[in-house]
Simulated assay, not measured.
Amino acid sequence: MSKRLIPILILLVSFTGFAQRGGEIQEKIKAQKIAFITDKLELTSEEAQQFWPIYNAFEAKVEKIKSEDLRPLKKEMRQGDVSDKRAGEILERLTKAETEMHNARLELIEDLKTVISAKKIIRLKVAEDQFNQKLLDRLKEFRERRQNRRN
């Protein structure tokens, strides 16, 4: 999952005001992403059966890194009032988490090579970027509509 998607999901969830509704939105986004990627990659049913468990495991791994490592670190970084020593520790942990996410992406690519063509793996990256851009656009539209209702 792209680095931009998680903050967007969090923002969308926070707009709802209700955890249950937020969970519904996350599930709806996930279903839309699955449909979008399946379509863009033109996955056969056989490819999809092998592709999605690999991709979902990758996304779970990345989400775990983000939730356990990156989000707490970024929250601490935003506070800004850290010592040089603590800043060094944060930077080291941040670099480690980013490396883990990169390695997870490399592992995904290697695993997918046994399931789909290199061309489809490239189209996966394009599809992820396109989906994330659509999600950002929808968030922007939502904010604009919300702002217009306030005015």
Rank of each mutant, 00 (worst) to 15 (best):
R78V: 09
E46T: 11
D111I: 00
N56F: 09
R93F: 04
R21V: 06
E89K: 04
I29L: 03
K74P: 05
I65W: 08
K119F: 01
E89G: 06
I10P: 00
E63D: 12
L73Y: 00
R150Q: 12
D111N: 14
T16K: 09
S83G: 03
G17R: 01
G22S: 03
A60G: 05
I34G: 09
N132E: 09
N132I: 07
S117F: 02
E27C: 05
Q32F: 03
F36H: 11
I54A: 13
R149G: 12
W52L: 04
Q49E: 14
M77F: 10
P53V: 02
K120Q: 00
L139D: 04
A97I: 04
Q130H: 05
E141S: 14
A60Y: 03
R123D: 05
E128V: 03
L5P: 03
Q49C: 09
I116C: 00
E24C: 01
Q49I: 12
L73V: 01
E100R: 11
E110D: 15
K40Y: 02
Q79A: 09
R145Q: 15
E110W: 11
T95H: 12
A118R: 01
V126A: 07
K120R: 00
T99K: 15
L124W: 03
E141F: 12
E27K: 12
R21F: 00
K28A: 12
P72T: 05
E68I: 06
L139S: 11
T44K: 08
E63Y: 14
T16Y: 05
A35K: 12
E24F: 02
R150L: 15
Q26C: 12
Q50G: 10
S45I: 10
K28D: 09
K40V: 03
K134T: 09
E92I: 08
R138D: 14
Q133L: 11
T114N: 07
E100P: 10
L124Q: 02
